[in-house]
């Protein structure tokens, strides 16, 4: 088995007809996966709320029909808004996430913390496979890690990314790469 069992499987966005509302959170080009998933389903879009990480001044993407569209300048601001929408949402609301691996890591942890389980959440990877990694030694979080091993940006320890993923933290585990041979690092590889 090549896939580890704690590794998330992102899949495809899959809006359900019977959902009473749809809450979408997308980052950057992830919005294209959203538009594709809702194409030809104007009825669903009319009861959808879309939270999008996009630059200030960017135009509203085409193909979102009657959805309520909210643009936010950064991942942090978008996730704050996403959290507020989740807190007000009713049962029957389906949640959809699209974006880079690191974005999905963090946003799905927000959704899990709000009690969303099973088929109430759909996700799609769109963008780089850079990972969100937590240093197990200093607990520092790092977004967009593309290469292993790498130096922790918080404490400086050389880390390898262990094949172990926490949905609660939305991150892979980074563990000291050279504890048994200081300064000797394995060859770098990209995700």
């Amino acid at each position: 088995m090549s896939e580890i069992t704690s590794r998330p499987i992102w899949g495809k966005l899959d809006p359900a007809d019977q959902a009473s509302a749809h809450l979408v959170c997308a980052e950057g080009h992830g919005i294209e996966a959203v538009v594709a998933a809702f194409a030809g389903r104007d009825g669903l879009l009319s009861r959808a709320t879309v939270v999008h990480v996009a630059p200030v001044g960017a135009a509203r993407p085409a193909g979102l029909g009657g959805a309520a569209y909210h643009r936010h300048p950064s991942r942090a601001t978008a996730l704050t808004a996403f959290r507020a929408h989740l807190a007000r949402a009713k049962m029957g609301t389906q949640v959809h996430l699209a974006g880079s691996e690191a974005f999905l890591d963090e946003a799905s942890a927000v959704a899990v913390a709000c009690g969303i389980v099973g088929d109430g959440l759909t996700t799609e990877l769109s963008g780089p496979a850079t990972r969100r990694v937590q240093c197990v030694h200093c607990k520092g979080m790092m977004d967009e890690v593309a290469v292993t091993p790498f130096a922790c940006s918080h404490c400086g320890i050389n880390l390898t990314v262990r094949d172990h993923y926490s949905r609660r933290l939305g991150a892979f585990m980074g563990v000291c790469a050279d504890a048994e041979a200081p300064g000797v690092l394995p060859a770098a590889s990209r995700f």
Partner: peptide, 27 residues
């Protein structure tokens, strides 16, 4: 193994790093 990292995981997830056993359906 780290409690802080594994907290909130289910039985299959927290045994993720164990080699061989998953292939055997042990967990």
């Amino acid at each position: 193994w780290s409690l802080d990292f594994d907290l909130g995981m289910n039985f299959i997830e927290w045994h993720g790093p164990v080699p061989r056993a998953h292939d055997m359906g042990i967990f």
